[in-house]
């Protein structure tokens, strides 16, 4: 916040240039050793939009969103978040940016050795101006309420079910009030009822916190509920884009296969 005020003019300028996109990716490439994982990725994420990315296992979905938060460094291409090229940022600027992006890991990645409360406190206590214990309490209660798990506050992660872990993982990212949310397979491994609860939660979050989100999934029920727009990833490239209905009737067999497997 502070730095946004200091560089207020500059941010304003940037916003004028491209007001509606929070994330712009062009011709992104990433390979590991000899293995090309992302071939040529281009996507734009509008402010307030829920973009669903469909893709089968191992086609580079997680690699894509890890590039967005700078956990992986792309080999080539443009990757702008809030209009800043992410590879140009120094370490402190990257940290600042990461606090504005929420990342829900595929396996929740809760800190095993800490209680739910400590999990939630952790990122807040490590900001430039750490908050006191008293200031933390309302924030923690707010996000736990948002994910419907206020009574789990003193539990350890090992005592939680898969669905609860997802929710706490979500609460832990929401507590930083991110402008962009990246969900890595939010419903994979959950039963249908819990899955649909999580999908509804994703919608809630979009409304309540006005976040822009990328939702990676191959769960069509989740895609149907959450999407404003869908893109289909195949072997490191986007091969189709459109609404749920449009893609359901696509001519491409690969695209249709997602819809067929569920119904």
């Amino acid at each position: 916040m502070d730095s946004a005020i200091k560089t207020g003019n500059k941010t304003l300028e940037n916003n004028v240039n491209s007001p509606e996109y929070v994330l712009e990716i062009e011709h992104l490439k990433k390979s590991f050793d000899d293995k090309q994982v992302l071939n040529d990725i281009s996507l734009k994420l509008k402010k307030g939009e829920n973009l669903v990315v469909l893709g089968k296992s191992g086609h580079g979905k997680s690699v894509l969103i890890k590039c967005i938060v700078g956990l992986l460094t792309p080999d080539a291409g443009i990757l702008k978040v809030f209009n800043k090229e992410i590879t140009d940022l120094n370490k402190d600027e990257l940290t600042e940016l990461r606090r504005r992006i929420g990342f829900l890991f595929q396996n929740s990645a809760l800190y095993d050795s800490m209680s739910v409360r400590e999990n939630l406190e952790f990122p807040l206590q490590r900001q430039d101006e750490p908050l006191s214990k008293e200031e933390l309490i309302p924030l923690i209660e707010e996000v736990l309420e948002a994910v419907g798990l206020l009574d789990a506050i003193d539990k350890m992660p090992s005592d939680l079910s898969g669905g609860m872990r997802k929710r706490i993982g979500l609460a832990r990212t929401l507590i930083l009030k991110p402008a962009i949310m990246l969900y890595d397979e939010p419903t994979t491994g959950l039963d249908p009822i819990t899955s649909s609860e999580i999908s509804l939660l994703i919608l809630d979050i979009q409304k309540k916190y006005n976040t822009s989100s990328i939702i990676i999934t191959h769960d069509m029920a989740c895609a149907k509920v959450t999407n404003d727009r869908i893109m289909v990833l195949k072997e490191g490239e986007f091969i189709a884009e459109g609404s749920y209905e449009a893609l359901e009737n696509s001519e491409d067999e690969f695209v249709r296969s997602f819809f067929e497997s569920t119904n």
């Binding site: 990461r98 890991f105 990645a109 809760l110 990122p123 490590r126 930083l176």
Partner: peptide
């Protein structure tokens, strides 16, 4: 991915 989670939360 707990270490990655710390990293991305700044």
């Amino acid at each position: 991915e707990q270490i990655d989670a710390m990293e991305v939360s700044g």
